[in-house]
Design a protein around this nucleic acid. Structure first.
Lengths: 198, 198
DNA sequence: GTCTATAGCGGGATAGAC
DNA sequence: GTCTATCCCGCTATAGAC
């Protein structure tokens, strides 16, 4: 930019991301319904009305946070390019899940807890993305059954159980806790592998 | 009671439980912060002010629901009188958990999702009860390690992983779904056993 | 025990000046 | 793009009649 001069108080490139970040943090901590636009504005350092330059309403703010998280997740899963036999793919998926989710505890929390505060249309959109992530794991379990390396009584139930196990980790893990992420990854992979192996 | 005559509109023995039931159902569906005292009153069939004959305030209503659930859980665990070797106790715990939680999906949902809407003192009380439930499972895993029938890299992590696996079940299971509770119980016990066994 | 009425406050969202 | 000011609404909780 040649001319850095601005009108007083014009900071869209700074304020925009700050609104998202602040909303995410506050909603993760207190819940969507409990956080007001005024609170978000105060933390960002603007007046409440200014938020509406960045979101059409409060519902869209929530939806955008959740959609961005799910889109990031699916893009990262795709980029991880998980291949090989079923056992190798399950290990790759497990480690990918942990590495992706652990540094994003606020996003995970919001995407999990605030589903019921989405409008029906928005809920359907997020749910479809979540489902496609689950299906990626289910395909691995299915292939492992065919290969004869996995033995689970019900592929769908095992999928849901593993997702819950892995996602639950994000709800109690603390970065400054007793165990580093590498160690957690190894422990969880051990549990997952044994649970489904023949 | 000799005299069944009442003042018009006096129904404490009916209204009391109905307030609890209605609050539980509405909070499970929409979340504590999103449900108003007026909504609860409307579903119960009284005016908002009448609710304050049964609770001192909204916060206490939430706390009472969660405390009752946790107290029921701990009492039922105690009554289940889980004994024997570690493998038998783990199976009994797993089956107990599923049988207790599956028919109480609203309580489970509220007790899990609304922790952050508790006042600090109330949170501490609920958290202590939750912790003592977790500790019961951890003791089983620990004993199994000593007996040499379990092999988990970290007892505490395995405890949290198993609790998340089992509690996650309550979040997706539907009574009218594809699988009956007995079948679910068997599938989950298979996964749990394999995950921790030597 | 329940009602009606209301105090007192804070919510989401918009209008118009700068 | 942000501000000030405000509309209109719904919230929790209480007071006092019946």
């Amino acid at each position: 930019m040649v001319n850095m001069a601005r009108k007083q108080g014009s900071h869209s490139d700074i304020t925009g991301p700050r609104v998202q970040d602040t909303a995410l943090r506050l909603i993760a901590r207190h819940g969507y319904a409990a956080v007001s636009m005024r609170q978000i504005a105060a933390e960002v350092g603007v007046q409440a009305g200014a938020l509406y330059n960045y979101t059409s309403d409060k519902q869209s703010l929530l939806f955008d946070l959740m959609q961005a998280h799910m889109a990031d997740l699916l893009a990262a899963l795709d980029a991880a390019d998980i291949q090989g036999d079923a056992m190798a793919r399950l290990e790759a998926f497990t480690r990918f899940h942990i590495r992706f989710h652990l540094p994003r505890s606020d996003q995970v929390f919001v995407s999990y807890m605030e589903l019921r505060n989405l409008s029906p249309q928005n809920f359907a959109a997020i749910e479809a993305m979540r489902r496609s992530y689950e299906d990626a794991l289910e395909a691995i379990l299915h292939d492992g059954e065919v290969e004869g390396v996995f033995a689970v009584p019900d592929t769908r139930v095992a999928t849901m159980a593993l997702i819950a196990t892995l996602t639950g980790l994000s709800h109690w893990y603390r970065e400054d806790g007793r165990l580093a992420m590498d160690r957690i990854e190894a422990i969880y992979w051990d549990l997952v592998r044994k649970a489904v192996a023949v």
